[in-house]
């Protein structure tokens, strides 16, 4: 019963996200509204973490497999892709590596500098 109730709450928030997407004229997908709604509900205390914890842990844990169905769809994009797939592939791979390192390094740099400042003071 507990899981059903938790799943119900999460589904309600997902549905509210869908409604917001339908109403608001912004290029924001429903799941982003959903994250913000859920975060807002938790921060404001409307929703307690205990009311969703187990189910949300479960859903997060199984997340990788949820990407399998859509990703297998790559086999259908092949027709359009095959002309310049090497370029696309190289761009996708290289930029991913660069972004990961740049983003991580910049974050780490700022955090460490801030720590340094505090130690100096």
């Amino acid at each position: 019963m507990k899981y059903l109730k938790q799943m119900g709450i999460i589904s309600c928030i997902a549905f509210l996200g869908e409604i917001m997407k339908a109403i608001l004229p912004l290029p924001v997908p429903a799941n982003i509204y959903g994250i913000l709604l859920m975060l807002g509900a938790l921060l404001s205390g409307v929703l307690k973490v205990d009311q969703v914890r187990e189910t949300s842990n479960f859903l997060i844990e199984i997340m990788p497999i949820l990407f399998v169905p859509v990703s297998v769809g790559l086999m259908d994009s092949w027709e359009i892709l095959k002309g310049s797939w090497i370029q696309y592939f190289v761009i996708a791979m290289v930029s991913t590596m660069v972004v990961m390192v740049v983003s991580g390094k910049v974050t780490q740099f700022v955090i460490q500098r801030k720590k340094g400042d505090r130690e100096d003071a």
């Binding site: 997902a14 799941n31 959903g34 709604l37 859920m38 973490v49 949300s56 997060i60 169905p69």
Partner: peptide, 21 residues
């Protein structure tokens, strides 16, 4: 397989929980 995919939106929304914590 789409039925597995249906869980993707609820699952993404749950990312708010670790964010909150």
């Amino acid at each position: 397989a789409q039925y597995i995919g249906y869980l993707l939106t609820p699952s993404t929304i749950c990312l708010a929980v670790p964010l909150y914590e």
